[in-house]
Design a protein around this nucleic acid. Structure first.
Lengths: 338, 338
DNA sequence: ATGAAAGCGCTAACAA
DNA sequence: TTGTTAGCGCTTTCAT
């Protein structure tokens, strides 16, 4: 593990430490030949600068952290990619940190801000705002991606998200417009996440506006994954012949799990039960049947996140809340009911 | 961004820096009351230790790095999770680093070993062995996950993988056993990756052993993603009525893309074309039709990786190559042909 | 039980 | 153009 240090490179090359430092960092005022010689020593001995020491010294970095909670959420991939891409175009450096579903995102963020001296943090997934007191410890500006920061008093917290209420409202409205009156909802724990609550409200209100009473036994609670969603819908269906003709799933992944369950129980999608998803992940266009879904504009979300965090770092637009529009992608998992 | 430092905590608490350090690290030999007081100051002022400085000082860590190339490969998720889980049970600390598909994994690894002072590195994805010279720079023991390190002379490189040749052989054999004689192969660039080459050889040899000539026009080249696979198969099918009854895809994701293409072209899976995948990702059991696939034992792979890297760090089993068995998961995307 | 002091590898004034 | 030097925040002997 004995990596060579700048000191030794200097000694071997017969120059001073600062000269080596200059070469490493491509600073001006270095003789061409000296530079050549140092480069050669570096190459030969495989010297690698110790970034820890560099960071320690420099006191500040250009790092913007992207803290992703939930490694296996396909909805996040294109967002992470795009944010990275956008930040890379600037003078800032994107640093993606994935943390476990069970990890504490606020603690991670605090650590990040301190350790990596992140100038700003973009949160993707999780529910950091749920712990406002701990959150207040973070001094760096924060941007919440796909989660609204409306409920926050924290001035350094911005957000970029869709109007979950309205999106869910539209999704259910599409179902109703297609003649469905008996609609089930597949979502997360309503009290655990604002996001879930908003989508639930949007869906239920839409139902009510059309004079449809929503019986809570048609709210199917599940985690945001394939297996759990499949199990939940299987449970619902195995009780007997379903008396609903459409299902609104709060994520595409849940929709996939639900469709599997419906198929396994001997029903057809969409002929017997129509399904609409949420997110608009890539797989939705490849699944069979292809999945009708409320698409969140992931590219735009990413773009705005990148822009906003940089503005925030410069002290501009702190606490700004950006709300984007969703778009329904009509495919073949919803059929007209007469 | 002005985080308080250990020095200031010491001053405020009226003790020395070392005492504060002792409290932070929970070392013995600190008076209860002193500890109390220091803790209080830390709490009150929101002091967070600077991990950069700590790492710099400590010269060595307990970090084991997991370097994942290709953020959107669902096959990797459970492996990463399990490796993390296993390492967490030991005194070592797992550190997952995701790098872009276009990034240089060898450079990243070198940087990692130096910067984070990783004791060992587990590689997931990419093809680091393709650059042996640069790779030799890494002094920390390395474990290649799901890629064979057989071709390497490097003594510090171990690997945990399946026998790709044999697995592909079995997959195609299953197709043949089901009466298929005309089989297409969907894979990556054969010369770019040993893994692709091995699977190709296994498939082709199996065909030959059954007296079937493989016409290279039925080798469909594509990247390992949905879109490209779908496009490639669409191209193949739009040429005219397919004269093959089965397809072997080198990854489940590719299989999904292929199935979409087949369906879109008006054919049925498996009635017109049977499809077998590779990897055994979770989604394969939810897709429609459910996907028959050669499952790589991801849990076991992860487990062995974790064990091996720790042994390697201790100087044991350096360069060990572990080869695991795949298992065919029979579902409904392959049908008997008479 | 506590403190003083020597660095970890690097950068950035300031000198030369 | 190059070298000298003072730290960055922390851990860790070694004294006290």
């Amino acid at each position: 593990m004995s990596t060579i240090t700048i000191r030794e490179v200097a000694k071997i090359a017969g120059v001073s430490i600062s000269t080596v430092s200059r070469v490493i960092n491509d600073l001006p005022d270095v003789n061409r030949q000296t530079k050549q010689k140092v480069r050669q020593v570096i190459e030969e001995y495989g010297y690698v600068p110790n970034a820890t020491a560099k960071t320690l010294k420099q006191a500040k970095t250009n790092i913007i952290c992207i803290l992703v909670k939930g490694i296996d959420n396909p909805f996040f991939f294109p967002i992470v990619e795009k944010i990275q891409y956008e930040i890379n175009k600037t003078r800032y450096i994107p640093l993606v940190e994935y943390i476990d579903e069970s990890a504490d995102e606020v603690r991670s963020a605090i650590a990040l801000a301190a350790e990596k001296k992140a100038l700003g943090i973009i949160f993707l997934g999780g529910n950091p705002l749920a712990r406002p007191k701990a959150f207040a410890r973070i001094k760096a500006p924060c941007v919440m991606a796909t989660v609204s920061a409306n409920g926050t008093i924290q001035r350094h917290v911005s957000s970029v998200c869709v109007n979950d209420y309205q999106a869910a409202h539209e999704a259910v409205n599409y179902l109703i417009a297609n003649g469905h009156r008996h609609i089930a909802i597949l979502g997360g724990r309503r009290l655990a996440h604002d996001l879930v609550w908003e989508r639930y409200r949007g869906a239920r209100d839409c139902l009510e506006e059309h004079g449809i009473d929503f019986d809570d036994k048609y709210y199917v609670e599940s985690m945001f994954n394939l297996k759990d969603a499949c199990a939940a819908i299987t449970r619902l269906l195995s009780a007997g012949k379903p008396d609903f003709s459409a299902l609104f799933a709060m994520s595409d992944i849940m929709a996939f799990g639900a469709i599997r369950a419906i198929l396994d129980q001997g029903y057809r999608v969409p002929e017997d039960i129509s399904v609409i998803g949420f997110d608009g992940i890539e797989m939705a266009g490849y699944f069979n049947p292809t999945l009708t879904t409320m698409r969140q504009p992931s590219e735009e979300i990413a773009q705005h996140c990148a822009e906003l965090i940089i503005q925030n770092i410069k002290g501009e637009n702190l606490g700004k809340k950006i709300v984007l529009d969703t778009e329904i992608i009509i495919r073949s998992s919803v059929i007209k009911r007469f």
